[in-house]
């Protein structure tokens, strides 16, 4: 049993642009700390990728945000409410872990049951089925079959349909492409991108780098229960470096090493990689040109997200 802790954060300065905000959120199971002092910020209208290896604490965090699990410490605000309150849940759609429905009911009847719990009219069931069917045609013919006969892909789609019943402001999806075939993965990503347009905010948990890279605006990386990085995808891939192609290269390397703010210079594949703030590109370009060098390329260095992730986690893969 979790200990009693306040679930509302100490809000000295509430930020209206944040739909999800946690401060020092912690969950311990006996001696195991599943989530450790987590500060998470999800902005209104963005598709936020919650990235981490299996067992990093993603699902536990999402469960705390939904009020399913009580935190051992810290606080969380979701849609400016404590997690799990009916007022907040009325605007949240969620698919946590694997989809879970009643096997003896059809997909349609499962959605009707959820519609009754949610307090939305039955007419909404047809709308959400249509919404997910745009990219998952096979569900339409099977909506009246019993859920236990559904394929995993259809179950995932039904889970997304249930999450959409309330036309939520915040959509929380936990590994929604798990177990899908390649077409199903592509369909689901396309669906998520579409759902994330406009005012709706999507919090997408995944251990797939390519998935969050394709779908998300910003990413939070969780590792062993701790948030180790948070920012835009481009920022995380950039990693604070510039790529410079200049002639003669040896002279360019000597000058670059002496420049203020450049912490290192590495020559690879005919270009120089300068470890510095990419925002200083214009200044560095001016200095190289004034030294008589011919600069043909100057751009922020971009690592693959996988490289960035490996660097952040000390080599542990997802």
């Amino acid at each position: 049993m979790a200990t009693n802790v306040p679930q509302s954060p100490q809000e000295s300065e509430p930020d209206a642009s944040l739909l999800v905000q946690t401060r020092g959120l912690t969950k311990r199971y006996g001696g195991l700390t599943a989530v450790d002092d987590l500060d998470l910020s999800v902005r209104r209208g963005e598709v936020y990728g919650f990235l981490g290896p299996n067992g990093a604490g993603k699902t536990t965090t999402l469960k705390m945000l939904l009020g399913l699990v009580r935190p051992s410490g810290g606080s969380a605000r979701v849609l400016d409410r404590s997690p799990g309150t009916p007022g907040g849940l009325a605007k949240i759609g969620a698919l946590v872990e694997s989809p879970a429905f009643y096997p003896y009911l059809s997909g349609t009847n499962n959605l009707k049951v959820m519609a009754r719990y949610s307090g939305v009219p039955n007419g909404r069931v047809a709308e959400v089925l249509e919404a997910v069917e745009l990219e998952a045609v096979e569900l339409s013919g099977r909506a009246k079959s019993r859920y236990k006969k559904y394929s995993l892909g259809m179950k995932q789609r039904l889970g997304v349909a249930a999450a959409l019943l309330k036309d939520p402001d915040l959509l929380i999806l936990d590994e929604p492409t798990n177990g899908l075939d390649p077409k199903g993965v592509a369909d689901m990503r396309s669906l998520i991108r579409r759902l994330g347009t406009g005012e709706r905010t999507v919090l997408l948990s995944s251990h797939l780098l390519g998935e969050v890279e394709q779908v998300c605006d910003r990413i939070g990386v969780i590792h062993k229960g701790k948030l180790i990085s948070e920012g835009a995808v481009a920022d995380l891939r950039g990693g604070g470096a510039l790529v410079v192609r200049a002639e003669p290269m040896e002279e360019a390397a000597r000058i670059a090493e002496r420049l203020e703010g450049v912490e290192g210079v590495e020559a690879t594949d005919g270009v120089l990689r300068l470890k510095t703030d990419p925002g200083r590109a214009a200044e560095i370009n001016a200095k190289l040109v004034s030294a008589g060098l011919r600069v043909s390329e100057l751009r922020p260095a971009e690592r693959s997200l996988e490289d960035a992730f490996l660097e952040m986690t000390g080599g542990e893969t997802v």
């Binding site: 939904l66 009916p86 049951v113 249930a162």
Partner: peptide
């Protein structure tokens, strides 16, 4: 059944609180 099928998490995240 709610525990066996894992449906408890689905229904308590819909809207009503647990006592309801």
């Amino acid at each position: 059944g709610e525990y066996g099928w894992g449906t408890l998490k689905t229904i308590v995240t819909q809207r009503p609180n647990r006592p309801q």
